[in-house]
Amino acid sequence: MQKGSNPRVKQTMLKGKKVFATESLAPGKSVYGESLISLNGKEYREWVPFRSKIAAGLMNGLRMPELSMDSVVLYLGAASGTTVSHISDIVSNGLIFAVEVSPHVTYSLISLAEARGNIVPVLEDANKPEEYFNTVIASDFVFQDIAQKNQVEIFLKNCRLFLKQSGFAMISIKARSIDISKKPRRIFEEVRKELEQRFREVKPCTLEPFQKDHCLFLCLGRE
């Protein structure tokens, strides 16, 4: 997130280290074991780059357009809500549609949603966006982290339906889930080409040392 914009996400120091943190929408509780930080009388939650790919991207200098407090976000592959919880902090007056297909992890996701009020759990397969067309609305930001072979196709399908014309999107690619026999660098190059056919600008950001062989692609200007 670009600096000086949304006050709910900040860069701060924790135990002598530079970290990103988000102002908690449900103070007093740590969601996944992250530290709670008190800043100017407000409670912030450390955004742990080893646990969240967006935080890893930010640590590596990723410059994402700003999310405002009433932004609408579509999050594909929400799992138990680790990253979703931080997005929920940031878009405090907005909505975040959290799509997740595996039932086991969604129990925590639903509890998180109940504690916060701006998360809509959507228990569907991201490959079938028609199934949630009557739930998810046009979004300012579409993010995907699902580690599937055809994840780029799934991402593009969702962006076509749900990304606002003024919005931006981001996808996290784990080289191994696309093809274990190819070199990550080659896979990332192919993904980038595919994305460039649908977006005006595509900016890659690798996630070492936080996540191995992962790359985020920030996509701006939908076709």
Binding site: I110, G117, V120, P121, T135
Partner: peptide
Amino acid sequence: KIARKGIEIAKEKI
């Protein structure tokens, strides 16, 4: 209402 309804549907489904 979207958030409330979404949670309700998710619980029903799961």
